[in-house]
């Protein structure tokens, strides 16, 4: 129990959204991750690419944090919604 409590208090939970071709490659459109404090969006991408099918994603995809485009070195805080965005094709 003590370990679990420590993990809960010291790690940050983020919700990761996948779309279009990326969602198809991983077979899911949302992933809940727990990351160590100080993690970045790049760490989120690394964790997603380690999932089955994730290796087909580019190592530097477009990303967004809380509905805004962000760089891979952007910090992640608890409760963030991180999105990994395939090349956009609107218009």
């Amino acid at each position: 129990m003590a370990t679990m409590t420590n993990t809960t208090t010291s790690s940050i939970s983020v919700r990761v959204l996948l779309f279009a071709s990326y969602a198809e490659r991983l077979g899911r459109d949302v992933v809940e991750l727990k990351l160590p404090p100080g993690a970045t969006v790049g760490d989120v991408v690394f964790a997603i690419r380690a999932l089955p099918g994730g290796g087909e994603l580019p190592d530097r995809p477009l990303t967004a944090r809380n509905l805004e485009h962000c760089a891979l070195d952007a910090p992640v805080v608890a409760g963030d919604e991180i999105a990994i965005l395939p090349p956009m094709a609107g218009g």
Partner: peptide, 28 residues
Amino acid sequence: IEEAKTRVPIWKKEFYADGTVSWVDPTR
């Protein structure tokens, strides 16, 4: 229109006459 094409997270899946389907990637 130019900013919308590169910044708005919208994806396009095309269905072709030959029966194939693909996600459009304008960066290719």
